[in-house]
Computed example of a mutant assay.
Amino acid sequence: MTLLTLALFQARPAFHSADEALATLNSAMSRAAAAGADMLVTPELYLSGYGSAAAARGAAQDLGSQTLHAAAQIAAEHRIGMVLGYPERCGRALYNSAAVFGRDGRLISNYRKVALPNDFERDCFVPGIGPEAFEFEGVRCSVLICYDIEFPELARRAALLGTELLLVPTALRAKWRFVSDAIVPSRAYENAMFVGYCDFAAEASNSQFSGASSICAPDGQHLCRATGPEDLILATIDTTAVQQRKSDFDFLQDLKGIGCATSPIAKIA
Rank of each mutant, 00 (worst) to 15 (best):
V114A: 01
F101A: 12
K113W: 01
H16E: 13
I149H: 05
T240P: 00
G257Y: 09
L47N: 05
E153K: 06
P43D: 04
F15N: 08
D238E: 15
R103Q: 15
T170G: 01
E20W: 05
S205C: 08
T2V: 15
S48I: 08
I268R: 10
M193I: 12
P127S: 10
A72C: 09
L116R: 00
D123N: 10
Q253F: 09
Q221H: 14
D199S: 04
C224H: 00
C141I: 02
G196H: 08
D238V: 08
S30Q: 14
W176L: 09
T163W: 03
A171E: 03
C260Q: 00
S52Y: 04
V114S: 01
L255H: 11
H78V: 01
A56E: 04
A99H: 06
S48G: 10
S247H: 07
R225N: 10
D231N: 14
G105V: 11
F194D: 10
A226T: 13
G102C: 05
A18S: 13
A60R: 02
V83E: 06
L161K: 12
E203M: 12
R140W: 13
K175I: 13
A266I: 14
Q10A: 08
A56S: 15
R225V: 14
R103T: 14
D238T: 08
G102N: 12
D19P: 02
L223N: 01
S213D: 05
R31I: 01
G162I: 11
E77L: 06
G49W: 01
A37V: 12
A93L: 03
K256S: 13
A53K: 13
K246A: 11
R140D: 14
S210H: 09
L160Y: 02
A54Q: 15
E88A: 11
A93C: 06
L68V: 05
G220K: 06
C141W: 01
Y50S: 05
N191E: 14
A133K: 06
A235R: 00
V143S: 07
R187E: 13
Y46L: 07
F101L: 13
R79Q: 15
R173F: 14
R245Y: 01
D248G: 02
S142N: 03
S180V: 09
F209E: 10
H78Q: 13
A158E: 11
G257E: 11
D231L: 09
N191M: 04
I258E: 09
A75E: 07
A174E: 08
A14G: 03
R103M: 12
G49R: 03
A235E: 07
A70R: 15
A171F: 02
S247P: 05
G51F: 07
M193V: 14
